[in-house]
């Protein structure tokens, strides 16, 4: 076979290289440097972390390419950036500057209320959020090469990330117990492509890497998501909205590696300074919940 560039295998493969790692939201090149030094496997470059987007309101869009390029020049690890759901021109722009991964993200204000981006058309791989198995497989059907739970971004409350992780992983466990003849009806019920339902049942996990995101703020939160069976974690506001980002970032990285060792988790959880100020999910009006964006 002659050389083939930017194949689906290489897109999925990059996410496999990120497993067991922490992807950190950063808003400046200085943050990006701190994140890389703390052991991040990748950074998400954006203008405002989700907690600030929540607080300030207004329309949240793709970040200035100049900022993303500066961050790409600063670090040697992969750089991701967000586009609005359905905004394929923002994705074309990020493709043109050569980011390593695009997050079609509910954290930004959706640009299309009916359709997500056709991600097969892009050389850059995509990660998308999900709340359940059907949503994960729809996004993979559209070409996503990596999945993350939505959780509830910018809250520091891990409860939604846990809910979505348990939903996806629990549905896969139940799917594995279904007889073959029930798969088509199941695919119809959850609104997912039949071939991906079948593949997931055979694999016993999603066909792509599956990270946790949305509300992770402490080493214990990160280890909880790993023990539940996730492949790695995104930490958005939890690091740079805390008292000591360098120390907390490094502690969360260690917690993801040693997620099954309570002794090390206790050690790395000590003296981290102030955690981000959280916002309980139950205190947020339903129409302000970010996870309900996308379908």
């Amino acid at each position: 076979m002659d050389k083939q560039v930017a194949t689906y295998e290489t897109k999925k493969g990059l996410a496999q290289m990120l497993k067991g790692g922490v992807i950190m939201d950063v808003v400046t090149p200085e943050h990006a440097r701190i994140a890389e030094d703390a052991g991040a496997v990748a950074v998400m470059a954006l203008e405002r972390v989700p907690a600030d987007i929540r607080a300030e309101g207004g329309v949240a869009r793709m970040s200035d390419p100049e900022l993303i390029l500066k961050i790409m020049d600063t670090v040697s690890i992969p750089v991701m950036a967000k586009v609005r759901i359905g905004h394929f021109v923002e994705a074309q722009i990020l493709g043109a500057i050569g980011v390593d991964y695009i997050d079609e993200s509910e954290v930004l204000t959706p640009a299309d209320e009916e359709h997500h981006i056709n991600k097969h058309e892009f050389k850059v791989p995509f990660v998308c959020g999900c709340r359940n198995l059907g949503e994960a497989l729809r996004r993979i059907g559209e070409g996503a090469a990596m999945i993350r739970t939505k959780g509830e971004a910018g809250t520091g409350d891990v409860v939604e990330a846990v809910r979505h992780a348990r939903a996806v992983l629990g549905e896969i466990r139940r799917l594995q117990n279904l007889p073959e003849e029930e798969l088509m009806t199941y695919a119809k019920e959850i609104g997912a492509p039949y071939n991906l339902v079948k593949e997931t049942r055979e694999l016993g996990h999603l066909p792509v890497v599956n990270f946790a995101a949305g509300g992770i703020a402490t080493p214990a939160d990160a280890a909880l998501m790993m023990q539940l069976g996730m492949d790695g974690v995104f930490v958005g506001s939890g690091i740079f909205k805390s008292g000591d980002p360098a120390k907390r970032g490094a502690a969360i990285v260690k917690a993801v590696t040693h997620y099954n060792d309570p002794g090390i988790l206790a050690e790395v959880s000590r003296n981290l300074g102030e955690a981000m100020v959280g916002r309980q999910i139950t205190s947020i009006p339903k129409e302000e919940l970010i996870a309900n964006r996308g379908w």
Partner: peptide, 28 residues
């Protein structure tokens, strides 16, 4: 960067010790 990631077939003579057919090795 990532958009330049690729797949290609390689000829790896050392693998003859493992499999005499020495078919091309598909590398990612």
């Amino acid at each position: 960067r990532q958009v330049e990631s690729f797949e290609i077939d390689l000829d790896i003579p050392s693998l003859k010790k493992i499999d005499p057919s020495n078919k091309p090795y598909h590398a990612i």
